[in-house]
Write a protein that binds this DNA or RNA. Structure first.
Length: 271
DNA sequence: ACATTGACCTGGGAGC
DNA sequence: TGCTCCCAGGTCAATG
């Protein structure tokens, strides 16, 4: 579930509890995530190490140590939480880091699509093929337009392709296209420069606003302190099939694109 | 080199 | 109440 705003929210939330603190112990309750957790390696590399930095790249969270990096992906249903040491583990708590402050960093993930890896190589192999950060200065209208001309898929699938732009998943792809008034089935190379301008603006606006709201909680996502994200209340088309469009009142449509639910207004969003 | 499809998992809701 | 079916925010390997 977690897209860029949720990962960013999580990252900002846990960072103050981690940076400068020492990992005293690690427990792996369930190593069978997307890639199996190598418990022995993680124990050896993290134990008694100080956290130097916490950062985000695409939908990955990177916790840096002098020995290497812990790379965490939340998959579809993963959350990270900071809890006190007496808080009992819940079902699907797969991984825990015990800090010298008495706090625990816990990774919970019912569907186990997430990942926890330790990497010593730089650059990190998981991140090698990732595209541009949409909130970065380098993400410009021109760079977006150039990319749209290079690809053959519809613009919604394009937006979700992590090799092109990172961090946008199904919810925010729908939301961005609604705000930009672009039909999701538009072929990316048919977009005009003007449409790219609108889309560029929409992407930054939607993501920034979602981060401010603490992300979107539909079902599984919670912030590091257990609070939900409040952007759900600001969703304009996602999960609103047959409900009136906030701009023109015509019913929001639902179609499948690239096997994903795609919501849009057929009156407002044009080719 | 692209774009598209199925597979990986569990849980919750709808329908019977 | 309980069963089955379908759906879910992501990614990657295997196809075309």
């Amino acid at each position: 579930m977690p897209e860029l705003p949720e990962v960013e929210t999580t990252c900002r939330g846990i960072a103050p509890f981690l940076i400068g603190h020492i990992i005293q112990n690690i427990k792996v309750h369930e190593p069978r995530l997307r890639w199996p957790i190598n418990t022995r390696v993680i124990q050896k590399q993290l134990k008694n190490q100080r956290v130097l930095a916490v950062s985000r790249r695409a939908k990955y969270i990177i916790v840096s140590f002098s020995t290497g990096n812990l790379v965490i992906h939340l998959g579809m249903s993963g959350t990270l939480a900071i809890v006190n040491k007496h808080t009992l583990p819940r079902k699907h708590d797969h991984f825990e880091c015990f800090l010298n402050s008495g706090k625990i960093l816990r990774f919970n993930d019912p569907r186990r699509f997430g990942a926890v890896l330790f990497e010593q190589t730089d650059p990190l192999p998981q991140l090698a093929h990732l595209g541009i950060e949409p909130l970065d200065k380098s993400f410009t209208v021109d760079s977006l337009y150039e990319q749209t001309q290079k690809h053959r898929s519809n613009i919604k699938t394009f937006l979700m392709n992590q090799r092109i732009i990172v961090g946008i998943g199904n919810i925010y792809a729908n939301e961005c296209l609604f705000l930009a008034k672009i039909h999701p089935q538009t072929l990316s190379y048919h977009l005009s420069l003007t449409q790219c301008k609108q889309l560029h603006r929409a992407i930054q606006q939607v993501l920034k606003k979602a981060i401010k709201s603490g992300g979107t909680t539909l079902k599984d996502f919670y912030q590091y302190d257990g609070k939900p994200g409040y952007f759900s209340q600001a969703l304009t088309v996602y999960d609103r099939e047959d409900q009136p469009c906030y701009r023109c009142q015509s019913p929001v449509k639902l179609i499948q694109l690239g096997q994903r639910a795609t919501y849009f207004c057929s009156q407002c969003q044009l080719f």
